[in-house]
């Protein structure tokens, strides 16, 4: 008995250490599991609130810049309306006019320097945001919504080692996907585009529209460098993102109005 007590006093902390490390690893692994992604993250109400307050101060300090951007956005939106009106007038076939709705949101907090980066939006389930929706900025694709609470949403940024988005070359039929190599937040890599694709520096990489998450032809970045993987059949392409993630404050969440229809079709196929 005395020996047991002595043993516990001497090695207790070591066992506690091993136990706590085990707990940590359990949490990490559990958190990476898509199905069981846990609730405690920055979409949690309290940390979200604090993040929001600090972001509000930052926002105030960059109001001028923000206004300039807003004016520019407004201009481009007006331009789009005019263009689509012309298109409608000239086309004979009735198309479904509203496939996607955009929900605009501010960013409450974000990281850039880690391997796995998340963005927290200041809007959540109350505004109609759901997990799995795509998120874009004015110039580029930003990520996919992972978790939502009532007032906040946590977004898996494309600067996340597990974020994978289907892309294609603009105006061409070749498809692939992008992954972040976790080094530089200005670049992502595109893979799986066949080596006979006609590609040149400066080509635009856009979303392929193969999933319902993003509409097709949304800009992502331009081809900076490309090479055929040794002995491979596909290109490895370095893509410079259109948007500087550090300066993004406003994003749009894409709500697909045909998602249910699309999903039911996929279930039928299986």
């Amino acid at each position: 008995m005395r020996n047991l007590l002595f043993f516990l006093v001497k090695y207790g902390p070591t066992f506690l250490f091993i136990f706590l490390q085990g707990l940590c690893f359990y949490l990490i692994v559990n958190n990476n599991d898509k199905q069981e992604s846990i609730y405690v993250n920055s979409s949690n109400l309290f940390t979200g609130y604090l993040n929001q307050k600090t972001q509000e101060i930052t926002n105030f300090l960059s109001l001028d810049e923000e206004n300039a951007l807003l004016r520019k956005d407004k201009a481009s939106l007006l331009q789009q309306i005019i263009n689509s009106n012309i298109e409608k007038a000239s086309s004979q076939i009735d198309t479904i006019d509203n496939r996607y709705n955009l929900i605009s949101s501010k960013i409450c907090s974000k990281t850039l320097n880690l391997r796995n980066n998340y963005i927290t939006l200041c809007k959540g389930a109350l505004e109609g945001i759901e997990p799995g929706m795509g998120v874009i900025s004015d110039r580029s694709v930003v990520g996919i919504v992972k978790e939502v609470s009532y007032h906040y949403a946590s977004v898996l940024s494309i600067l996340h080692s597990q974020s994978r988005i289907s892309v294609s070359l603009k105006n061409k039929i070749h498809h692939g996907y992008i992954l972040w190599d976790t080094a530089d937040p200005q670049y992502v890599n595109a893979y799986a585009i066949r080596k006979y694709a006609d590609i040149s520096k400066g080509d635009t990489i856009v979303t392929s529209g193969y999933s319902i998450i993003f509409p097709s032809n949304l800009d992502i970045g331009v081809v900076e460098k490309f090479e055929v993987e040794a002995g491979g059949e596909t290109f490895e392409i370095k893509v410079k993102l259109f948007d500087d993630f550090n300066s993004i404050d406003d994003v749009y969440v894409i709500k697909s109005l045909l998602k249910n229809e699309f999903d039911s079709l996929n279930i039928n196929n299986e």
């Binding site: 707990l23 940590c24 690893f25 359990y26 949490l27 990490i28 559990n30 958190n31 846990i38 405690v40 993250n41 920055s42 949690n44 940390t47 993040n51 990281t111 880690l114 796995n116 998340y118 946590s154």
Partner: peptide, 8 residues
């Protein structure tokens, strides 16, 4: 909780 990196 703040870093979204539970456990690390």
């Amino acid at each position: 909780f703040f870093y979204d990196s539970i456990g690390v």
